[in-house]
Simulated scan of single mutants.
Amino acid sequence: MSRLGDLAFWRHLRGPRIDAAPADPVAPPGEGPLVLICGQSDAMPGLAAALRRLRPGLRLGALGPVAVDRGDRPVPQVLPAPPGDAALSRQLLAALDPAALVLTDGLLPAALVFACDEAAVPVTLIAGQIPNAAETERGLWHNTRARSPATRIARVLVPDRATRAEALRLGLAPARVDIIGRLTAMIPAPRVNRRDAEALRPLLHARPVWLAAALPLAEANAVLDAHAALLAARHRALLLIAPADPDEAEAIAVVAEARGLSVARRDRDEDPGPDVQVLVAGDTAELGLWYRLAPVTYLGGTLVGTGSPRHPFEPASLGSAIIHGPATATHAAEWLALDRARGARAVTSAAALRVAVEDLTAPDQAASLSVAAWTVATDRAAVIRRIAEAVLSDLPEGRG
């Protein structure tokens, strides 16, 4: 990394700068200890809810954008951004007397961190990544390590061993770097119409069923090739297709029929009877239903990189094993977490898709994959709790 790149990185960590004196900080109401949270991220709403749940009476304040937890309870804004110099940082701490400071998104506002160190206010940094040691040795960290704000932080929370190793290489004390797991995005599980699920389940009983979710027309032939190969081995197999574009449902059905497949159309109220080999839904509106009914899901758009692939935690949260192609730039962190946990099957071609579908329609294979995927998709709550417990452990007992 160039010197300019190093400087840009540390400017990013220092966060937004306030050159003029900001308005007076607004103290959150209440009498309990105050925890300040700085940095907007997916972690912030869930963390706020966990902190409040574990320590009733705790006050929270945001140095930056306001976050709302799942109960729609906002974190009040203390200041629109962290103070940009030492004097303003000291004034903030003197005015509010916070019990702790939490930095998310790897944000590192230097003046505020130094002020917290002087005032014995513990600081927790949630760091998704640490700059590579070889790069920072040539840059700002190496030249100013003794004065680095990172060395003044009470605790750095990292997702895995590799990130912890990078932190240690940069001089952080081992006792201050804890692994808490990867904080993935939280999404609600898609809605499942239970009445429809109960009506359709008997029709699918004992049949190998798989789903192509949000399938673009460009991938129809690859998916239908995989299904034809599956039918040769398991003649009662059923493919559910939820087109990415409702306007392509008709075209996908025509392509399937032209290949000699028996097709039913959901938008015509046609059921997947024993002779039906493909059921085409009108759109993705009922994806929760299909995820629930299909033990295996291929997430469309990931093979040829067209359209906007669905979030992989959708099928994972409803117990469907997942197959995906190489186009995973959308939701890259979630795909990486699933692949690392062996919670998804990656394929690179239509031929590999055929093999994966046949493998995973064997129940034991799908079950192993889906359990791993479900664990990854639901692990966020456990990670959030570990973060909250770490932050609260720094509060003196008398202040809780």
Rank of each mutant, 00 (worst) to 15 (best):
R380F: 00
D117M: 01
R399K: 12
L54T: 12
P208W: 00
G30I: 08
A133D: 07
G307H: 13
T184E: 12
S349D: 11
A362Y: 05
A167K: 09
F313L: 08
R234F: 01
L79Q: 03
V255T: 14
G260E: 02
A350G: 14
P149M: 05
A249Y: 00
V376A: 00
Q365G: 11
S89K: 01
T297D: 05
R169C: 15
W290R: 03
A197H: 10
A67T: 06
L36T: 07
V121R: 06
A362V: 12
H331Y: 11
L303D: 01
A233T: 06
A341Q: 04
F114S: 06
S89V: 03
W374I: 00
A43P: 10
S89G: 04
P56W: 04
A212L: 06
L36D: 04
W290C: 03
P74E: 08
P98K: 07
R145I: 09
D225M: 04
R14G: 12
L395Y: 05
L293N: 09
I179L: 11
A213V: 01
N221T: 13
A222L: 00
T151Y: 01
S368T: 15
L204G: 14
W290T: 02
I153K: 02
A110E: 03
P309C: 12
R152G: 01
L112S: 09
A86R: 13
R191N: 12
A50V: 03
P74M: 08
R385H: 14
D364E: 15
E389I: 05
C116N: 00
V177W: 02
L204D: 08
A185F: 02
P246K: 12
S41M: 06
W374G: 10
W10R: 12
E250Y: 03
D105H: 13
A362W: 03
L34F: 09
L238P: 06
R52F: 10
D247N: 13
A162H: 15
V26N: 10
G400I: 10
P295T: 01
D364N: 14
V223A: 15
E198K: 09
I241F: 08
D267W: 15
I323A: 11
L338Y: 07
R17F: 12
P208Y: 02
L230K: 03
L353M: 08
S89H: 02
P82K: 09
L287G: 05
T284L: 08
G139A: 06
G171R: 08
A67N: 02
R17H: 15
L287Y: 05
A62W: 04
D178R: 15
R268V: 04
L157N: 07
P122R: 08
L211Y: 02
T144Y: 04
A86I: 06
P315N: 06
A222F: 00
P82D: 09
S262K: 13
A27L: 10
L92F: 01
I130V: 12
P312E: 09
R191M: 11
R53P: 11
T330H: 13
S308E: 12
R259V: 08
A120F: 01
A175G: 14
V347P: 03
A48H: 05
A146I: 06
A373Q: 05
A199H: 13
G288V: 07
V357Y: 11
S317T: 14
A111Y: 02
R14D: 15
V113H: 00
P65K: 10
I323L: 13
G288C: 11
R268W: 14
A199E: 15
L360S: 07
A244E: 05
P309L: 07
R310A: 15
P98L: 05
A43N: 05
S262M: 10
V391L: 09
A316F: 09
P98A: 10
A332D: 14
